[in-house]
Computed example of a mutant assay.
Amino acid sequence: MENSEKKNLRKWWLNRRIKYNVGLLISGFVSFNLYWFLGELLIFPYDDSFEVTLFTMSFQFVGYFFFTLIANIFYFLGYFVDVFFNKNSSEKFRTNLFNSGFVFSLFIPFIVPILIVVRYFVEYY
């Protein structure tokens, strides 16, 4: 792959990073609020130790910050996967790679609210 192709490829990935990070921020915000809502609805009536305080919000913010850093490292690796495995420089391959990584990254924060529902059915239902 030529330098100009690599430069265009780098630019292609760089142009989508903002969308990726905005998606992560929205996903984190929605999943935290869903966690809070489901915890209050399903867990709190049976376990009054469930609470969302400034400390728990701060702890989750720090945890989500590190998740976002790790997600961006994987985003960066998407460029290298594209370079080494997309030998024909197929736009379809590149777009599918981005979209699958994007959807997967947006899903990960929702594991926590899903675990709230699982906890409810395992412990209290």
Score class of each variant (00 low, 15 high):
1 M>L: 08
2 E>S: 15
4 S>I: 14
5 E>C: 09
6 K>D: 02
6 K>Y: 03
9 L>N: 15
9 L>Y: 06
10 R>G: 13
12 W>V: 06
12 W>S: 09
13 W>L: 06
21 N>D: 06
21 N>L: 14
21 N>T: 10
23 G>D: 04
27 S>P: 05
29 F>N: 02
30 V>R: 09
31 S>R: 01
35 Y>I: 00
37 F>S: 05
39 G>D: 11
42 L>D: 13
44 F>D: 09
45 P>Y: 01
45 P>E: 08
47 D>T: 05
50 F>G: 04
50 F>P: 03
55 F>V: 06
55 F>I: 02
59 F>V: 06
59 F>C: 01
60 Q>E: 01
62 V>S: 12
62 V>Q: 04
62 V>N: 05
63 G>M: 06
64 Y>L: 03
64 Y>F: 09
65 F>G: 08
66 F>N: 05
67 F>V: 09
67 F>L: 14
67 F>R: 13
67 F>G: 12
69 L>D: 04
70 I>N: 12
71 A>P: 02
72 N>F: 04
73 I>S: 00
73 I>V: 12
76 F>M: 13
83 V>R: 14
84 F>P: 10
84 F>K: 09
85 F>R: 15
85 F>C: 14
87 K>D: 09
88 N>D: 14
90 S>R: 02
92 K>W: 00
93 F>L: 08
94 R>L: 03
94 R>I: 07
95 T>C: 06
97 L>H: 05
98 F>C: 13
98 F>I: 09
101 G>H: 03
110 F>W: 02
113 P>R: 07
113 P>A: 06
114 I>N: 02
116 I>Q: 09
118 V>P: 03
125 Y>V: 14
125 Y>Q: 15
